[in-house]
Nucleic acid binder design. Structure first.
Length: 275
DNA sequence: AAATTGAGCAACCGCATTCCT
DNA sequence: GAGGAATGCGGTTGCTCAATT
């Protein structure tokens, strides 16, 4: 690994953290809070850069971290959220209390990705692998359309597909309900996210997807939804919750980050379904 | 028993964004 | 508004360890 430029300048330590270093950092932040990260190492008596201290705290020392393996519910939620949010690990992590973006990213790259591939699902597009070519052409059309913001009708909270023949087959089973009155992009009241779990262990039907392109879309979609071992319902309470930490794509704090790019993606993922 | 391979994880890097002067 | 510092994020690398040959 290369060394941070700041670490070169100050001859700072790098690599794995020793228990002593952990203790110093933990003690310091417990007593004083982290404040300005760049000053933490000096004040805590560590020969590390602030960036390294921040990462160590967030990924390992934070007291609210959940330890241990990911449950199937968590894994399922990650898949569903990834279908909507893509590689926005920090946003995904915000919806999984006690889990870090790094942890989720590692899990995705080392485990979930392979499981999806094994099931014949493209981990990037969340579609059957056989549809990749078609998907590429749709992606191209979508990126072209994103250059034309007037194609979106954001005012009423809905997303128009601008006349594209949206034969998108995969509907993430997270159901993102729109704001009640469809007049803003923020969330009020109680939102309901319905998560159903793909059956990781079952390979039945996988090959048939590849052999029967005609029926493939509908079949895959139904199977994706019906094969679930169970459904988990995640309730996201209120706008206040969103703005405090658990931000959903349309929440105020995230809205500018979401539109129109994310709406495009969401519209695509939902097969042109109006939100 | 030694060597090889692969999975899982921790940490770093570079870039983008935000904050501050 | 400009420029530098601080922070946050996603991609990537490299280490460890268990399983396999």
């Amino acid at each position: 690994m290369k060394r941070h430029s700041c670490c070169y300048k100050q001859k700072l330590r790098k690599g794995l953290w020793s228990p002593e270093e952990d203790e110093k950092l933990l003690n310091y932040i417990t007593k004083h809070g982290h404040g300005c990260w760049s000053s933490v190492p000096k004040l805590a008596g560590l020969e590390r850069c602030g960036k390294s201290c921040r990462l160590r705290w967030i990924n390992y020392l934070r007291p609210d971290l959940k330890r241990g393996a990911f449950s199937s519910e968590e894994q399922n939620l990650i898949v569903e959220l990834h279908a909507v949010l893509g590689n926005r690990w920090s946003q995904i992590a915000a919806r999984l209390p006690g889990r870090t973006d790094n942890e989720i990213k590692n899990l995705w790259n080392s485990c979930i990705k392979k499981k999806l591939m094994k099931k014949g699902i493209d981990p990037i597009t969340h579609k059957p692998l056989s549809e990749k070519e078609e998907s590429n052409s749709v992606s191209l059309r979508n990126s072209l359309s994103s250059m034309i913001p007037t194609q979106f009708n954001i005012d009423d909270g809905s997303v128009s597909n601008a006349g594209f023949d949206t034969q998108v087959c995969v509907k993430p089973s997270i159901i993102l309900l729109p704001p009640p009155n469809n007049t803003s992009s923020t969330v009020s009241g109680q939102d309901h996210v319905n998560v159903s779990e793909p059956n990781w262990e079952s390979n039945s039907g996988t090959t048939s997807h590849l052999n029967n392109p005609g029926m493939e879309e509908m079949k895959w979609s139904e199977e994706y939804l019906n094969e679930s071992l169970f459904s988990t319902q995640v309730y996201v309470k209120s706008e206040t919750d969103f703005n405090s930490n658990i931000a959903f794509p349309w929440s105020q704090s995230q809205a500018c980050d979401v539109f129109p790019k994310d709406l495009q993606r969401m519209a695509f993922s939902f097969g042109g379904q109006t939100l």
